[in-house]
């Protein structure tokens, strides 16, 4: 074996992975293989979680049956915050290191995050009516969550306002980064202000929810993570394909699948 090659410093596997992820054809090929598995994991987990939550968990002694809305409301609310946090992190990476895949992932996160925020607000309103007697109150938690929806819509609006996608993504990433200040406000709103919305029942140290009610919630929370991953990659693939329309690799991947070793098995229609 060549001695020079032996003395070369070995690249960290993680750094190598991120370098590869920065390559559009590699990202497109890998994500295309992952997406069906992520959707399958979501469907299986969501079916288990919904079955346990809707049919096996006992009714709550105070809220009755309406507590079952928690199995979609709580994971959706968690996802709305988690996705915004990730969007801000990817936006930061895109702004500092100018990595195009990070821009694409940040911008692909926005519609999914907006969907979860909308679902959290609507399911929360439908839980509030039988429990509080009102669909909506201008409570700190509800209001800050509504502001989160407006932030998502602002990011999407700003991204679509520019003709040049990279310039649009940079402007939208900056807004995403600034808007991240709302995340601690949402999280601590129930502690900082006297709110109608209840405090957290689950923390790192434990939970006040009975295991029969807790497990379906945790399964649904995990299912929504797979939903986000699958949806994010589907959107990122589309955005990447649209941006690289004039490039040879995307035409090979989409127009002549047989010529492309990455896509040959999956893109045939």
């Amino acid at each position: 074996m060549n001695r020079k090659q032996d003395n070369k410093p070995r690249k960290n596997a993680l750094i190598l992975f991120f370098h590869k992820m920065g390559s559009p054809p590699w990202f497109y090929g890998l994500s295309g293989k992952l997406v069906p598995w992520l959707w399958a994991a979501f469907v299986v987990l969501a079916m288990c979680g919904l079955y346990l939550g809707l049919f096996r968990a006992p009714p709550d002694y105070l809220q009755g049956e309406s507590f079952r809305i928690m199995y979609i409301h709580v994971p959706a609310a968690w996802m709305s915050m988690m996705i915004y946090g990730l969007m801000a992190v990817m936006g930061f990476i895109a702004l500092v290191w100018r990595i195009r895949i990070a821009e694409i992932l940040a911008m692909s996160s926005a519609p999914v995050g907006a969907a979860f925020t909308l679902a959290a607000l609507i399911s929360g309103a439908l839980w509030g009516r039988p429990t509080w007697g009102a669909y909506w109150v201008w409570d700190a938690r509800l209001t800050s969550e509504l502001v989160l929806l407006f932030l998502y819509l602002g990011v999407l609006g700003l991204y679509n306002a520019f003709d040049e996608p990279r310039k649009a993504a940079r402007a939208a990433c900056l807004l995403a980064l600034v808007g991240a200040v709302n995340l601690p406000i949402i999280h601590y709103s129930v502690q900082w202000w006297n709110t109608l919305h209840q405090g957290s029942s689950i923390s790192v140290t434990g939970s006040s929810i009975h295991p029969s009610m807790l497990w379906p919630l945790l399964i649904m929370a995990l299912a929504t993570k797979f939903y986000y991953a699958a949806n994010l990659l589907s959107r990122a693939r589309l955005m990447l394909a649209q941006q690289d329309l004039r490039k040879g690799w995307i035409q090979k991947a989409l127009v002549k699948p047989a010529d492309n070793p990455l896509e040959g098995h999956s893109e045939n229609e």
């Binding site: 809305i69 979609i72 609507i122 399911s123």
Partner: peptide
Amino acid sequence: PFIWSAYGIT
């Protein structure tokens, strides 16, 4: 109705 509406809309 509230439960099924919440699930349906989501």
